[in-house]
């Protein structure tokens, strides 16, 4: 099973390494991780996508919460939530046909072309991880991907209660 954990941590030096270290030290998986300060600059929010059985996920949550710098831990996948990921992808578009194809695909997936050169585009796409994967599969059928980057998931619970 895949889970998305949302973690509020003190925005202190070393806090991130404690969280990451915990995962490697105890043999837990990290599939993606994002971290940045929140509206309260003394607090950061990490979103970690991880996998394991329910028992492992329970241990991960408890172990995370035990870290002195960790303020709150919750499992976004437990309830309704919004999750997004951003992808930047550099595509070779040498022929006019390829350029047309990229444009069409970007429109369908509601992405945008954010950089243009004579023979290449950089496309930005925002969505769930599945949507990004579909775009990648579609574009690969007609064009060459030069390089790409994904941000990892960020997410928020749809509950009206704050996680604080």
């Amino acid at each position: 099973m895949r889970y998305i954990l949302s973690i509020l941590i003190e925005n202190e030096p070393g806090a991130l390494s404690r969280v990451i270290g915990l995962f490697s030290q105890r043999g837990f998986n990290i599939e993606s991780v994002t971290v940045a300060p929140t509206e309260d600059p003394t607090m950061s929010r990490m979103t970690i996508r991880t996998s394991g059985d329910a028992h492992v996920i329970e241990q991960i949550q408890k172990q995370l919460h035990k870290l002195v710098d960790v303020y709150r831990v919750y499992d976004l996948t437990e309830g309704p939530h919004v999750e997004r990921e951003i992808m930047l992808i550099k595509i070779a578009a040498k022929s006019s046909q390829a350029r047309e194809e990229v444009k069409r695909c970007v429109d369908i997936f509601r992405g945008s072309i954010v950089d243009v050169k004579a023979t290449q585009y950089i496309v930005q796409l925002v969505g769930t991880s599945e949507k990004l994967a579909s775009f990648l599969a579609a574009i690969r059928e007609t064009c060459d991907v030069i390089e790409m980057v994904r941000s990892g998931i960020v997410g928020l619970s749809r509950s009206d209660k704050t996680a604080k």
Binding site: P13, G14, S17, G21, Q25
Partner: peptide, 13 residues
């Protein structure tokens, strides 16, 4: 701080 991280309850720099 790095070398003790897995064996401390917490650490301060």
């Amino acid at each position: 701080i790095g070398i003790t991280r897995p064996v401390v309850k917490h650490s301060f720099f």
